[in-house]
Amino acid sequence: MSNWYFKSGNKTTGPLTLLEMIEFAAEGKIQETDLVREGLSNDFVPASQIPELNFNTDIDTEDSEIPLESLPLPEPRQRRGSSSLIFKLVALAGCFFLFIFILNVVTHEMQQSRDYARRLSSLNQLRLIGLGVINYASTANGYRLPVNARPTEKSPRHGWLTAILPYIGETALYQQIDFDHSWSAPVNHDIFQQKLSLYLNPAISEVVSPEGYGLSHYVGNANLFNRDQGLDMGAITDGLSSTIMILEAGENFDPWGAPANAVIPYQIMGPGNKPPFSNGRNVILADGAGRFISDSTDPAVLKAMSTPAGGEPVEVYEAAFP
């Protein structure tokens, strides 16, 4: 406790701790003849009468040591350094987690942007394929769609994706194909090994079959393409704008040259099926319009849109595009 005073001449110094008094005496700032007192109520006495000040230099060092119990305890101080370190660590941790949060948000936004760009790119490719089908039907084939080989057919046939090659800018490739032989015959092997970027969804990395053929990520509506002869587009009585013609596949891809590139759309759409994108897939309707159909679409609506002449009411189709 700081309650000691010493007087040297007419000057009084204090309050001081006993430890400070001892240090002053050791430095010669307090002499034996100076007066000291403890507290304000006690009288001043000569400094030589205070044993702790150790003015008797003749006493052996061991005897002159100040007992520990007589020394005042240092006044407690706040551990500012420790508190400051904890605060800095907490602030650093907060900055770290904020950085991770911002990084996750930015990464998520970038991923969404990439997915949207790929979805849009795929839709544009589908539009070109759909335009190729419509041009095939309108230019030289009496408004009839190209056909795929039926499972029971024995004559060599080629798929609808091969038939539209001249209408998508691949006339030179089309002219190299030997149509007297199957698409998978050795004479056609090198041709159908080629990868056609228009038939590949940019969101899908699988581009070649185990046999080395270039794949297609797009399939036709089997109700339109799997026929003995090309379907007259006038026979799509449900309406061209209400019937799916081509759609994205999400798995089980076939080579683009294979006549098997057709499915019943509702069988690979909706819950339980793998879409190429997170929540649905792009389709091309028979009028050439491109649409994105969500996986949450009513299965009854998907089934209706898979038939060219099912006779469903218009309201059913409107439910797919709210």
Rank of each mutant, 00 (worst) to 15 (best):
A289N: 11
L285N: 02
A300R: 15
F292H: 11
F277H: 15
A300F: 14
F292R: 11
N282D: 02
I293T: 08
D298G: 13
E315I: 10
G280W: 14
G290I: 02
N282A: 13
A286L: 04
A286R: 04
V301E: 03
P299L: 04
N279Y: 00
I293D: 05
P299K: 08
V283Q: 09
V301H: 08
N279A: 12
E312R: 12
A300N: 14
D298M: 03
I284Q: 00
G288E: 08
P276C: 03
S306V: 05
A300S: 12
A300L: 14
D287N: 15
T307A: 11
D295L: 05
V301S: 03
F292Y: 15
P299R: 06
I284S: 05
N279P: 00
T307F: 12
P313H: 07
K303Y: 04
V283N: 12
P308R: 11
G310L: 00
A286S: 15
E312V: 02
N279L: 03
L302I: 09
S294R: 15
T297F: 01
T307Y: 10
I284K: 05
G311F: 08
P308V: 08
G288M: 06
P276R: 09
R281Q: 14
E312G: 02
S294T: 13
F292N: 08
A289T: 14
